[in-house]
Design a protein around this nucleic acid. Structure first.
Lengths: 349, 349
DNA sequence: CAGAATGACTTAAGCGCTTCAGAAAGTCCA
DNA sequence: TGGACTTTCTGAAGCGCTTAAGTCATTCTG
């Protein structure tokens, strides 16, 4: 920048103004500065130095629970992050991805401490993930998505419990009584197998707990004893990882006539497993998903599921980010609704 | 940092060393410094200031062609980026996502100029995307994936042409002569419809061109006139966007008996369309994909496709990044192989 | 036509760290 | 016992920018 200034014969401040505050100098001088910069091969202010001076980095740290391919194999994340990115992009913010370390339920604390970002967005991290304390230690503003509310941070979530209850009610109304629950990864050390109700209720993931509670409460109210409800945990977040547990659920005697699945991915895996076993869906088995990701609509059969407006959730998170960055005070925790969408994967018992 | 130094009664340099070069001070003084920092509420060196002093940001800019949900709806990207991330993460590098602007075939140039990153990785951008010149202007090292080689930058690609040729040969050997090509988005202003061979050959995306050439060359050599081969472009990268064109391809008289699809996603869309039309795959229609993404194995029927080792590609890109960051000189362009995987979506004509 | 207002630049003080070249003190060995 | 090393810590010069405050002409006002 000094070189450009010298070349034009002005001060460094003027060159800076040419880039940042065009109203501070005459249009022609600005042109001259820009021309000299181009000639010299100066591509504009160094972003890091600018950040140091302005204490703005233009990046939003996105804290993930898993590695990237697992994270993005869930369309719910893609849609949410895309909506978030679309909101913040015009303001010049980019997303800095911090994948989980595979153990602590989030990225390592030191990654947070070293990340260049103005704010952190945590997406469905495990309760008490060290990454969250690191965010606080650094004094970074925080937006959490699908996690318990943390004092001092903004939160956007989903009506998980109500949605799950609606799914359970739907199956009950269709006359199902032998209902299995297909849970997402839930234990600290996921083993991918049958879970006790206690284990299932103590997942370290907030949305798991809520959905589980919604299912079990509703079933119990209808007189289906919780002890009669088999609960299996998937051993991984991908369809592949889920298949063994899906087979486990369907391999019981008596076999469940319906499955409550904590995500569409799990539901799709369940349908795939059923097909392999020669069971027809929904003839022999009804399946309900959760999320309503795009593939749910195109699956065979189209999936009955609990729809949450993922894009709205992402946009809301984006607005929260922008608000906090503007210095506005932390708004109250918010929730997007969840509603049952009945398609063709469920039928009368 | 000065406050911590004062509290302990040492110089700022010593505090810095406590964090960065523990061998430069006695273990007990280091402990004392760290304790004082904790007490004062100092979370460690400010990342931006550290970056300015070291001229290292710890971030890798990932340049994408589309928005995030489109980008990540392609498992090929997720797998590749995950592998890349897994390689660079232990070295403390995170990924900074720069989505495309929807027009120029990449992110806006100013985003590149303002991004805090040590290096850029471009993933299948359109030829001549302004983002690429911006990278050069800034003097950032560059690794390109699935793009034409750019002087001075590292490149990793796939044997697209050979893979496409193998796919075409497979169909020919099964006796197919009425073969359609289902192309990915290819025009600057994708309209999602039938393409002339000239249009198809001039895609602004390198891998499109290569795959198309591989298909057409092989068909021509076998005596199938290019003019007899219908080529349709998908209008978007998602399954939803692809369906209309899939119907278009299948709505012809005479109907193709086989489809060469430029990606597994397109192949899946084609199978879905065929099902809606009451056609059996592979009975009435053979379908070949490209990429061999995880869902290809679980589809109904499992997909015959061209496998590329996406994880290896991502890892290779990661190694290139690390090498360039270490200051090693740019290695020669490299390619991962592509090989046909025959599953159940193809059969004799 | 004096004094206020405006426009166009410059000065200089940071932003919060890293790191190299010492200085001071302690250790070793012939 | 004194010179050569080590070890441990400090001083100070940056890293490349932004921006509040200030200077100096010019242009308006009444």
């Amino acid at each position: 920048m000094d070189d450009v200034a010298d070349a034009v014969g002005v001060s460094r401040a003027t060159v800076s103004n040419a880039y940042n505050r065009p109203d501070q100098l005459s249009a022609q001088l600005r042109e001259e500065v820009l021309r000299a910069a181009k000639k010299i091969g100066y591509a504009g202010p160094n972003p890091t130095a600018r950040s140091l001076a302005t204490s703005r980095t233009g990046a939003i740290a996105v804290l993930l629970d898993t590695n990237l391919s697992t994270a993005f194999s869930d369309p719910a994340l893609s849609v949410t992050l895309d909506a978030l990115s679309t909101v913040v992009d015009p303001e010049g913010h980019a997303l800095l991805l911090l994948p989980g370390d595979g153990e602590s339920g989030g990225p390592r604390a030191e990654r947070i401490l070293a990340a260049q970002a103005d704010i952190a967005v945590a997406y469905s991290l495990a309760d008490g993930a060290p990454a969250l304390s690191a965010v606080r230690d650094r004094g970074l503003p925080l937006v959490v998505i699908d996690q318990p509310h943390i004092r001092g941070s903004a939160r956007i979530g989903v009506a998980d419990r109500a949605g799950a209850a609606a799914a359970a009610r739907h199956l009950l109304e269709l006359g199902h009584r032998r209902i299995g629950i297909f849970s997402a990864q839930c234990l600290s050390a996921p083993r991918g197998g049958e879970l006790s109700a206690a284990e299932a209720g103590n997942s370290r993931f907030h949305d798991n707990r809520e959905r589980m509670a919604g299912y079990l409460e509703t079933l119990a109210e209808a007189g289906v004893p919780v002890t009669d409800v088999p609960i299996w945990e998937a051993s991984g977040l991908s369809v592949e990882g889920a298949l063994p547990s899906a087979f486990g659920l369907l391999d019981r005697h008596p076999r469940p006539t319906a499955l409550l699945c904590m995500s569409d991915l799990l539901a799709l895996a369940a349908i795939s497993a059923a097909r392999h076993l020669g069971l027809s869906v929904p003839g022999d088995l009804s399946v309900v998903g959760f999320d309503d990701v795009p593939p749910a609509r195109w699956s065979e059969p189209p999936l009955t599921t609990v729809r949450q407006d993922l894009a709205a959730k992402g946009r809301a998170a984006g607005e929260l980010v922008l608000g906090l960055l503007r210095g506005e005070k932390t708004p109250a925790p918010a929730e997007v609704p969840a509603e049952l969408v009945v398609r063709d994967s469920t039928a009368r018992a």
